[in-house]
Amino acid sequence: MDVFMKGLSKAKEGVVAAAEKTKQGVAEAAGKTKEGVLYVGSKTKEGVVHGVATVAEKTKEQVTNVGGAVVTGVTAVAQKTVEGAGSIAAATGFVKKDQLGKNEEGAPQEGILEDMPVDPDNEAYEMPSEEGYQDYEPEA
């Protein structure tokens, strides 16, 4: 019985440690998101679009440190934060509304985080759909 109880105690310690790591990862992701939003706020009209992409990228980098179902929630929060940063930029006159959601080359930025393969159960990952990809044929 002692062996059984000791095993359960060790398992509990492992769960607590994993929860603490997840909590730490979420806190880091939130900190990076805040950094990115402050970065966007300090940019001029020309830099705002690039700044919004930076927020998304920093958040995406930190999301990889967070495991399990938390990833889905962090990704949703990050996307809403990026959308909010863009709205703030438009409201303050840093950028025109028609410039939001495009990178410096004018290509749409939507789907940055949505296409990231995420499995809350950590069982399997699927690649994003290939609808947006084109076949590449090298020139002879």
Rank of each mutant, 00 (worst) to 15 (best):
G86Q: 14
E46S: 10
T81A: 13
K80P: 02
V118T: 03
G106I: 12
A17H: 06
P117S: 04
G67M: 14
K80D: 02
A124M: 14
P108W: 07
E130P: 11
E137T: 05
K32W: 15
G51L: 09
G36E: 03
Q99P: 02
V77C: 09
S42P: 01
E123H: 10
E131I: 11
K6W: 03
A29R: 02
G36T: 15
G36N: 15
Q99N: 11
K12G: 02
Y133D: 12
E130A: 06
A85T: 05
Q134K: 13
V37D: 00
E57G: 03
K102G: 04
A17W: 12
Q79F: 12
P128I: 11
K97L: 07
E57D: 06
P108C: 11
Q79P: 02
E46A: 12
L38T: 03
K60C: 07
V40D: 00
D135L: 10
V77T: 03
E105Y: 07
V16Q: 04
M127D: 05
K34Y: 14
K10D: 01
K58W: 11
G31L: 12
E46W: 06
A107P: 06
K32I: 14
A76C: 10
Q24S: 09
E126Y: 04
K45W: 15
A27N: 08
L8N: 00
Q24L: 08
T22I: 11
V40W: 03
E35A: 05
A27Y: 15
D2P: 01
D135F: 09
G41H: 12
G31N: 12
Q99C: 10
E57I: 10
Q134P: 12
Y125Q: 10
D2V: 00
V40H: 02
T54C: 14
A85D: 02
A89R: 07
E104S: 06
A56I: 14
E20Y: 12
T59M: 03
V95G: 08
M116F: 08
K45C: 10
S87R: 04
T54N: 09
Q62A: 09
A17L: 05
E130G: 12
G93V: 06
V63S: 02
G31E: 04
G51M: 15
G73V: 14
F4K: 00
V63M: 14
Q62K: 07
E57Y: 11
V16T: 08
T75K: 13
T72H: 15
V15D: 00
V63L: 11
M127W: 05
V52C: 09
V66H: 03
V48A: 04
A27S: 05
Q24G: 03
A76E: 05
D115P: 04
E139L: 05
G86T: 10
V3C: 03
K21E: 00
S9P: 00
K58C: 06
E126K: 10
D2F: 06
Y125F: 08
A29C: 10
V16K: 06
I112D: 06
V3E: 00
M5T: 01
G51K: 05
A69K: 09
K43W: 14
T44M: 15
V52F: 15
D121W: 05
K10A: 10
E61R: 07
F4R: 00
Q109E: 10
V49C: 14
F4G: 00
G132D: 12
A91G: 06
D115S: 05
E139I: 12
T59N: 01
T33A: 05
E110V: 09
V70P: 01
K80A: 11
A69F: 09
E139A: 08
V95S: 07
V37R: 00
Q79D: 03
A89K: 03
S9G: 13
E137Y: 10
V3G: 01
I88V: 04
D135R: 06
G25P: 00
T64V: 13
L100K: 04
T59G: 04
G106E: 07
A27W: 10
K6Q: 02
M127P: 04
T59Y: 15
E105W: 02
Y133F: 08
A30T: 05
A78E: 01
S87T: 07
K34I: 08
E57P: 02
S129F: 04
